[in-house]
């Protein structure tokens, strides 16, 4: 669709011969925040790696396409891809030390990023950006080296650099998962503010459905390499369709000093290779047909998609 900023069509991604993601499709509109949730190993981060397309990450797109603002970026050359990374696609990794070289000042690293895209680096403008994001001691920050900063501050410096580079799409790979609650709140609020002010679209990978419910417009739930449910965040959280989503929501820890319910068993390691539903071994509603019926994400109610409705009356 023409008014989508990002379209993921039928995407299948492998690491070598090992299939991680199978036939994932969804689209993001400009200014939209989409959260992708799911257990570890379900392919959430691989999805981000596929969009980034950096060859060192090893994610190989076997099938499908990625379209950014009307341009197919699935198989761009190294230099073409470098030109869109930073300026059209921003990235905040999970590791708070993963954005910057730990022993060189932010100043030189900001300069290097800007100059790589033939943009002039202006310190005054950078400090204004820090002020806009309410960073403390904004006039001194550039002189610091990342090891002198907290993890949260490092993430915020990465976001500030993205503001200067001006991408349309931000990819956040569990960007708040290792932060304390205060830093989490700051980063989330910053991202929401930048979406409102700059119209950023944000693809946010998270385990934390609380964070997702606060920031996201849409929520995608992945299981063993497949998108099993996708839709408006309120609809997915209030009325989950897929049996896995229901179990995932039931597993959110409460304040009752009890362990979360959790899910019995583990996702199959070769889940993405399965023809039929790969949630079968853990699903209490599965029937014989589930094992053979091909995977397909269907629109169950308008704007709310799921690959299975077992155990739920629609």
């Amino acid at each position: 669709m023409a008014n989508n900023l990002l379209e993921i069509n039928d995407l299948t991604v492998t690491y070598g011969d090992f299939k991680i993601i199978t036939e994932v499709s969804f689209a993001m509109k400009p200014g939209e925040i989409v959260c992708i949730a799911g257990e570890s190993g379900c392919g959430k981060s691989t999805l981000i790696k596929a969009v980034l397309g950096i060859k060192q990450l090893g994610a190989h797109i076997k099938k499908g396409s990625i379209v950014l603002d009307g341009r197919d970026i699935t198989h761009l050359g190294v230099e073409e891809r470098r030109q869109i990374l930073g300026t059209q696609i921003g990235y905040v990794p999970q590791n708070t030390r993963g954005s910057f070289n730990n022993i060189r000042s932010y100043d030189v690293q900001y300069q290097e990023a800007m100059r790589s895209h033939n943009k002039k680096f202006n310190r005054v403008e950078a400090i204004k950006c820090f002020d806009r994001l309410n960073f403390p001691d904004s006039d001194k920050l550039l002189a610091y080296q990342p090891w002198e900063m907290s993890g949260g501050m490092n993430q915020r410096m990465a976001i500030a650099l993205a503001v200067l580079l001006g991408p349309k799409l931000m990819l956040c790979d569990e960007a708040t998962s290792v932060l304390d609650v205060t830093s989490q709140k700051e980063v989330i609020e910053e991202l929401a503010k930048l979406r409102n002010e700059l119209g950023w679209s944000i693809l946010f990978i998270t385990h934390n459905l609380g964070v997702a419910s606060h920031i996201a417009d849409k929520l995608g739930v992945m299981y063993a390499g497949r998108m099993v449910e996708y839709g408006d965040i309120r609809k997915v959280l209030d009325d989950p369709i897929h049996p896995y989503t229901r179990k995932l929501l039931a597993a959110i820890p409460g304040k009752d000093r009890k362990l979360p319910v959790g899910l019995e068993g583990r996702p199959p390691l070769d889940g993405a290779e399965w023809e039929g539903c790969n949630f079968v071994p853990r699903c209490e509603y599965c029937t014989d047909s589930c094992k053979t019926r091909p995977y397909k994400l269907q629109e169950i109610v308008p704007g709310h998609y799921a690959s299975c409705t077992s155990g739920r009356s629609v």
Partner: peptide, 16 residues
Amino acid sequence: EEYVIGMHARGVKERI
């Protein structure tokens, strides 16, 4: 190291 990926992800030139 992860910072190398971080730099690639913001399009920093390879030689830099």
